[in-house]
Design a protein around this nucleic acid. Sequence first.
DNA 1: GAAAACATTGCACACTATGCAAGGATTGCG
DNA 2: CGCAATCCTTGCATAGTGTGCAATGTTTTC
Lengths: 192, 192
Amino acid sequence: MTLPLRERRRQQTARDIQIVTLEMAQQHGLENITTDEIASAAGISTRTFFNYYSNKEAAAIGAPPPFQEENVEALREGTGSLATDLKLFLDNHMEVMADDETIMKLVGNVIRTNEKARGILEGFLIMERRELTECLNHRVKNRQTAVALAHFCTGTIGQTIFLWEHDQNLSLGAALDKVWTGQMEAAKLLVI
Amino acid sequence: MTLPLRERRRQQTARDIQIVTLEMAQQHGLENITTDEIASAAGISTRTFFNYYSNKEAAAIGAPPPFQEENVEALREGTGSLATDLKLFLDNHMEVMADDETIMKLVGNVIRTNEKARGILEGFLIMERRELTECLNHRVKNRQTAVALAHFCTGTIGQTIFLWEHDQNLSLGAALDKVWTGQMEAAKLLVI
DNA sequence: GAAAACATTGCACACTATGCAAGGATTGCG
DNA sequence: CGCAATCCTTGCATAGTGTGCAATGTTTTC
């Protein structure tokens, strides 16, 4: 709650830069705006921009919301069927992400056209997969199975966001339900 | 077989550049070498380098081997169980990839430390997923299920390469078998 | 309130990437 | 063959990216 002033300011500036970047990217395309322009729109020097983000793609992506400790714990210690517990985990995480719907839409546009931005996001996904693998490795002793399930999770999240971005009528939760049905169907087809 | 001279030269130069780039990256790290250095090591001008690749990361990645038409066709028209046909498809594709083992190892090193390179590779993966989705959509009518299966495939390939790169004793085929077992185990756990 | 820790900025500089235009090589065709 | 069209390579100019460094200012700590 009471982060020191410096820290609060830092986070505020970081977020300001991200929002300015995304808005300008939305208007003109990320390729067509310069770090100079972003910096002056954000009211800072170009040099300071690079103190916050190492490039404009990173500024556009920002930092995705981390998994909530409680949700990870619930998944690790869960006693329901794996499918039930995973779905619950994903439902909860989607609810967290729903707080950033505006940013997500804008980030989605950037991702679609910018390779470097994709790479940065992929980096975050790799870390999330690592975290999920550790977590799931408590429930399934075989590590390769845990890895597979972690991929399954991040894949589900990715497909959900994609579907949500391309279908205006779907809420994030509804998109997840639709993707989940497809995933379960796929799993069934594979074990027949 | 008998591509025109110009075309053969183009492909040869493209490959030369890639190999030179990967070797230099292996020695010094991709971040620490310049396009100037790559170009002169490859015996071309800097300007020509940029006629072949739009940046050094793209030069390092090159172009991954496409799926063989015959294998895709076999998957689309297959009559075995989905798991059997998919495994066969992946086995065949891994055999194709095995031709480029040397390059894959070097690319792997680059991917691990370079975000931009990751994004470029991810771009290729997206196209592969699209192709697989179309193909699988012939076997499973529900599109979302086809998408899920396509993710499953590219995920399997990714996990396989990762495992192969980190375990010196495993051939690509053996790594695939190990990953496949994990995937099947995961699918079973999900449908219980 | 003084010292340590950290933030912002300007400046210099190496590197990246593209447009353009000149000159060379390859191809296709009569 | 030999000429025209096409494509390739290159140098040059130029806009933009990203970092090290040092000066100056602000926040934190005690």
